[in-house]
Structure formats: structure tokens, C-alpha cells
């Protein structure tokens, strides 16, 4: 198993930390992982993205130009990364702020309205965990107990009291994700 993922959105949405939690959970499950962020001026321009690879085998290139899964959290990222999903792959997006919805006919498309759900949960900070939950529902690559351990490892101890809230958000994401398009 090798899953090649791009997570892309605005800086501040928790794109990089979502990738980190996914990777740490992978480490806890005994997988090989890599986390390759965009850095520097790109980030200061307001967009952030990270390439995450989770695999049973030694990972070759940590830098990719096509992906099994694209998790897209703003319009700029939709414009940039919709075309990079491998045929037969999948795209997950949050509809909030999206003016041009995905149009590909050779990939499966899911929508997870995490921004809306985070507002309902009265915590903007769990936005990225709702998205992560949606992803893990469609691709159950990792056991929830390892996601829990991944959260423990990723978050500084002073935030450990928030782990249960994060897990609640992951569960909400699993419930609200919807299939939008499935190729024939």
C-alpha cells in the first residue's frame, strides 16, 4: 500500500498540522511516511500545501506531481491541484468559498463541509480534524487507536486536554462527508 496525498489550502487552516498528525499516526501504525511542505514566500502569500506519503515500503521521492488523493480547502488550490489527481484517484474538498467546483469525470469527488461544521462545533481550530475524519472514512488506512497516539505525539502536552475534542471532530468529519461524483 502506498497513498500519495496533497493537502492544500490557506495558511492558518491547519493544513501542515493535519499532514503532521496523519504522518505521526502512520508512524504509530508502523508505516513509512514523508511530509514535504511548501515553505518560504509561497506560505507568506497565503497558500499552504503539504505532500504526505504513507506506505508499507521505503518511500522514494517525497516530491510528487500527481497524487492518489487531493484534499483541497480553497479556490486557489482547486485551480492548482484538481488536475494533479491521478485518473481513478479522488478529490476531497470543502465547499466553503469554492466558486468553481471540481469538473473532472475520471476521479471520485467527495465534499466535506468542514468550515460549516467547525462553526457548529464552535471551534474553528478543529476544522482540519473534521477534514481528516472525512478522508479516513473514505480511506481507512489507519486504525483510530493509532490516530489517537498520533495526536498525542503531534500535540504539545499542554494541548493534550484537547485530544478528545479533536477526536470528536474526526468522528463528525466521518459522518458528514458526502460523495458528489463517481465515475461510471
Amino acid at each position: 500500500m502506498t497513498e500519495e496525498i496533497i493537502i492544500a489550502g490557506f495558511g492558518g487552516q491547519g493544513v501542515l498540522s493535519m499532514g503532521k498528525i496523519l504522518c505521526y499516526s502512520g508512524v504509530m501504525e508502523g508505516k513509512e511516511v514523508s511530509w514535504m511542505p511548501s515553505y518560504g514566500p509561497e506560505m507568506r502569500g497565503g497558500t499552504a500545501n503539504v505532500t504526505v506519503i504513507i506506505s508499507d515500503e521505503r518511500i522514494s521521492s517525497p516530491i510528487l506531481n500527481t497524487y492518489d488523493t487531493a484534499i483541497i480547502l480553497n479556490q486557489q488550490s482547486m485551480d492548482k491541484f484538481e488536475k494533479t489527481v491521478k485518473p481513478g484517484g479522488m478529490l476531497i474538498y470543502d465547499g466553503n468559498g469554492i466558486t468553481r467546483h471540481p469538473e473532472r469525470k475520471d476521479i471520485t469527488i467527495y465534499r466535506v463541509d468542514a468550515a460549516e461544521e467547525a462553526a457548529r462545533m464552535k471551534s474553528n481550530k478543529v476544522f482540519n480534524m473534521i477534514v481528516l475524519g472525512g478522508f479516513l472514512k473514505i480511506k481507512p488506512l489507519l486504525k483510530m487507536e493509532n490516530v489517537h497516539r498520533g495526536l498525542e505525539k503531534s500535540l504539545p502536552e499542554r494541548y493534550h486536554h484537547l485530544i478528545s475534542l479533536n477526536e470528536e471532530a474526526i468522528k463528525r468529519g466521518m459522518e458528514i462527508i458526502q460523495e458528489v461524483y463517481q465515475p461510471a
Binding site: 503532521k20 504522518c23 508512524v27 513509512e32 511516511v33 514523508s34 511530509w35 514535504m36 511542505p37 515553505y39 518511500i59 517525497p62 516530491i63
Partner: peptide
């Protein structure tokens, strides 16, 4: 790239 990326 190797400086900035995370791995196990």
C-alpha cells in the same frame, strides 16, 4: 528539501 521535510 531534506532540511524541511519530515520523515520517521
Amino acid at each position: 528539501a531534506i532540511g524541511q521535510m519530515m520523515e520517521k
